[in-house]
Amino acid sequence: MSYWYDAHLILIQSTFVSLLLALSIQFPLRMGVFSFAGIGSYGIGAYAAAIMTIRYSWPAFAAIGAGMVVAMVAGYLLALLVSRLDGLYLGMATIAFTLILTVVAINGGSLTGGAQGLYGAISTLQTGQVILVCAVVVVLLALSERGRMGRRIDAVREDPELAVSVGIRVIRMRRMAFVVSGALGACAGGMNALLRTTVSPDDVGFSLVVLALTMIIVGGSRSWAGALIGSVIFTWLPQVLQAVGDWQTVVYGVIVALTAVYVPSGLLGVAQNGYRRMRRRSGPVAGATEKATGSEEPGGDSAPLEPLSEDVPTGGTR
């Protein structure tokens, strides 16, 4: 065990960093906010932590915290700027935001080390501490998936108009999503920079956007568990695929494409469906459909004045 742990330390560390990164995209996505600003925040966090460590010898957590604060402020300002955008347009704008940051890093002179980046960010950050941070984050996010907060996040994603009609301040929630995303992304970036003792503009490019998105979609976008599955798979897959040698990148692409097409709810969704089906087989839900009284057809005996053209009864939503 301990031998295995030592041999795979870098992968283990990457798994947790990737988890935080994936969560930084997933959390806004749970509110229907398609933002990649978390990747930009990763860059902010990485550079801030490296700069604080190298120049001012700040302790690890202070350096990471500084990056988080900067990224949260940036996230909030970005949220104000892009408040009119939605869907793919929002995705584009936030990708642009992220890539602008990369160009700024390349042109940042001695502060960011230009195209080479920064080296020698040596700190006392331990793998155990990284895991602890991840655990705390996961617990908080898991709580946000339940109860009142869980319902409200669902409502903001599924039907913002309905959400405001039950008093949910959707705009505020969405801004919060940007801030949380900034904190998570910066935390991931800061930890990665300190674990690797280095950061360069190449670390924060379009490929990282692609990786984070892939992790969430393949793992499952609705829950932290999906992000965990995704980050484990995509951190370890290259290792596993060494067996197929040269073709590993091809296989990798095929796996991503296949999951996107045929497993839309992600691996987590598959697991949940299987679990639900098992439970249903063991004991059916008490009289849900049977209890529904009367006819489902509109206008039968009640003779409304017009055919109810717009709302054809479908039994579900929309």
Partner: peptide
């Protein structure tokens, strides 16, 4: 919205396959 996201990722996967072949 789900379809948009999946199409994005599906495209990324297909792109990965093409890129990997050419790179190889």
């Amino acid at each position: 919205r789900r379809a948009e996201l999946q199409i994005l990722v599906g495209g990324i996967g297909m792109a990965g396959v093409l890129l990997a072949i050419a790179q190889r």
